[in-house]
Simulated scan of single mutants.
Amino acid sequence: MVSIHTRQLLSGLVLPVMVFLAVGTVLAGQIWPGRAIQIRMAAAQKAGAIYQVLLFPQRQFHEWQITLQGVGDLLAANAQLRQENQKLAYWHGEAQTLRQENARLKAVLHWGAEDTRDYVSGWVVRDESGPYLRAVLLQVGEHRVQQGSLAVDSFGLVGRVSEVGPHVVRVLLIEDAASRIPVTLQSSGGDAMMIGDNTPYPRLMYYNQSLMPEEGEHIVTRGQTGLTGGVAVGRVHYLAPGQPVVIPDAALGKLELVRIFDGGFTLEAPPSAGRVREKPPLLPDHRDGEAPSNWQNLRRFLPFSSLRNG
């Protein structure tokens, strides 16, 4: 039996030891970021499979519930489907006519399809959305994916790859506070920067004041060096005067299959008239051609370091 004084002494040491281990882990992650990412991604990969197994009963019960709820509406749904089938038959004929006309116009203009980019498809194995993070884990197998690649679903832009592991990658969603995507306003013709703020509607900033975003206009990614342009993003909506946000086209709340376009993407907004330039980083990670040293990583993290504006 452990004495009362010994138990009190051990209980008093638990908090300092845990704080010391937490600080040591954070420091080790800042000093050796590459190794920390590998360990974190390996742990996330293992936890993803367990997470899927634990969620199986919940998903199965949800499917049964939806099935039971739909039994009572079969008659009404059947009548509605018949009406929609008639409408679809009409529009199918119109689509066939337009398709033939489009083929004739392409032949006249010698139009050719654009080269398709290589992409990797992956299933979402874990949703990491929370108060301070909007991200998902994708199972991509043995495929090689570059950090910074764009990720889309069947509707539009989802985000970009932030971390790469052996078999899984983490995709930072466009609504995360660390997301920065240059976009083009299709109706007004201006450029802007779409910035996430951990809400379902990313903000539009750094746009030309003479080309204000229009309510409801569609926006796409801006084509520039290393970034594929024309990818559907969403539509503009004003929460308040002077506060435009983006309603994403992608179904960020129920992602299942996501495609990652291969390639190195740089998501930096070039300076132009009417756009406010962001401040440079307080402390550069490394000089040109040199990898960051352990001392630079530690100096960037410590609060008492001597920082200077770049």
Rank of each mutant, 00 (worst) to 15 (best):
P16F: 02
G196Y: 15
E215R: 15
H167W: 14
K106I: 00
R117V: 11
Q69M: 12
L172I: 15
P200Q: 00
P284F: 14
I219F: 11
Q209P: 02
L282I: 09
V233Y: 06
T6C: 01
Q58C: 01
V140N: 10
M193I: 07
P131W: 05
I4M: 03
I195H: 14
G229N: 05
L109F: 14
P271N: 06
D153Q: 07
V171M: 02
L298Y: 08
F261W: 11
L98C: 02
K106D: 10
A47K: 06
R170V: 04
T225F: 10
Q65R: 12
N198R: 14
L267D: 14
M205H: 13
E268P: 01
R277C: 12
P281N: 04
L283K: 09
P244I: 07
S272T: 13
L282W: 09
I39T: 07
R259C: 01
D118H: 15
A232E: 08
Q86N: 10
S293L: 03
A151V: 09
Y51H: 13
V168L: 15
G148R: 07
S11W: 07
L10P: 00
V276C: 04
E214M: 11
G289K: 07
M41H: 07
T6Y: 09
L9R: 06
L54F: 13
L68G: 03
P292C: 03
L302S: 02
Q146D: 14
W111D: 09
P182D: 00
V171A: 03
A113M: 12
E215G: 01
I260M: 05
A36M: 07
A89K: 15
I174P: 02
V161S: 01
W123P: 04
N85F: 06
A240C: 00
Q86E: 10
V124L: 05
M1S: 13
Q86S: 12
D262K: 15
A177N: 11
P57W: 08
E84F: 15
T225A: 12
E217K: 09
Q146L: 08
S3Y: 08
V120W: 04
I50Y: 11
G264T: 15
A79P: 00
R82E: 07
M41P: 05
A192C: 09
K254P: 00
G165V: 10
L27F: 04
I247W: 05
G253Q: 12
I219Y: 04
G141C: 01
A79Y: 09
P244M: 03
T184H: 06
Q139N: 12
M194N: 06
K46I: 06
A79L: 12
Q86F: 03
A151E: 02
L27C: 07
T225Y: 14
L105Q: 11
P270V: 05
S210D: 08
G223P: 03
H237P: 00
H167L: 14
Q8I: 06
G156L: 02
D115S: 12
A36P: 00
Q58G: 15
L282S: 05
L133P: 01
A250M: 09
E256N: 10
V158C: 03
D288Q: 14
P166A: 15
Y238N: 04
S11Y: 08
F261M: 07
P182F: 01
Q83C: 00
W295N: 00
G223H: 08
K87W: 11
T97H: 14
M212K: 14
G48W: 03
A77K: 15
M194E: 05
T25C: 05
Y206V: 11
G34C: 01
I181A: 02
N85G: 02
